[in-house]
Simulated scan of single mutants.
Amino acid sequence: MSEITYVRGDATAPSGQGPRLIVHVCNDIGGWGKGFVRALSRRWPEPERAFRRWHRERADNDFALGAVQFVPVEPDLWVANLVGQRGIRRAGSRAVPVRYEAIDEGLTAVAARAAELGASVHMPRIGCGLAGGAWSRVEPLITERLVRRGTPVTVYDHDG
């Protein structure tokens, strides 16, 4: 069984050739503007536009915790908007918005799409930035849903 590969770098510039999925965690209130999404939006406008439309039209689609939206951004490259946090962190609150069950559910969908495409998966430490999650809880989900199924996974720790 392979393992997660950890690298220093930018998850919006995933290494390797062939089909690749960039996975990140979004909130369930339609907010986009802080954290990793800023880097995505600087590189491609499509993931933000698609996410905002998906949220706006949620009465008629599958937008919910655990859902994933796959947005093509370049040939053989997609951004996976995974809804894995309830709301956003409020100033002074101890509550964290990460929802591990939703990340787990979303990673199941990512695994299916990666297998369908023959894609590798690339991500920052999802759910552990603004969502407030613990990598010790997220990493086993990635291992179970992706790595054990033979999907190559690279996790990027950004310099800066």
Rank of each mutant, 00 (worst) to 15 (best):
2 S>E: 13
2 S>K: 12
2 S>G: 06
4 I>G: 03
5 T>F: 00
6 Y>T: 06
7 V>S: 01
8 R>N: 12
9 G>I: 08
14 P>R: 02
15 S>D: 00
16 G>I: 08
17 Q>S: 15
18 G>M: 10
21 L>E: 00
28 D>P: 01
31 G>N: 10
32 W>I: 08
34 K>R: 13
35 G>N: 08
36 F>K: 01
37 V>L: 02
37 V>M: 00
41 S>G: 12
41 S>D: 14
42 R>C: 08
43 R>F: 05
44 W>N: 06
45 P>C: 04
49 R>N: 10
53 R>E: 15
57 E>A: 12
58 R>E: 06
58 R>D: 05
61 N>L: 11
62 D>Q: 11
63 F>D: 06
66 G>M: 03
66 G>V: 04
67 A>Q: 08
72 P>N: 13
72 P>K: 15
77 L>D: 09
77 L>S: 10
78 W>K: 13
78 W>Y: 09
82 L>W: 06
83 V>W: 05
84 G>L: 08
85 Q>M: 13
86 R>I: 02
86 R>T: 05
86 R>K: 11
87 G>H: 09
89 R>M: 13
90 R>C: 05
90 R>F: 04
91 A>H: 14
91 A>N: 11
94 R>L: 15
96 V>P: 05
96 V>H: 10
97 P>A: 15
98 V>G: 01
99 R>V: 12
99 R>W: 01
101 E>S: 15
102 A>D: 05
103 I>D: 11
105 E>C: 05
107 L>K: 02
107 L>C: 10
113 R>C: 02
113 R>E: 14
113 R>G: 02
118 G>C: 10
122 H>L: 07
122 H>I: 09
129 G>P: 04
130 L>H: 03
132 G>Y: 12
133 G>N: 07
133 G>W: 12
134 A>G: 06
135 W>K: 07
137 R>A: 14
138 V>F: 09
140 P>F: 08
141 L>E: 04
142 I>T: 08
143 T>C: 10
143 T>Q: 14
145 R>E: 05
146 L>C: 06
148 R>L: 11
149 R>H: 14
150 G>C: 02
151 T>C: 10
152 P>V: 02
154 T>G: 00
158 H>C: 06
159 D>I: 12
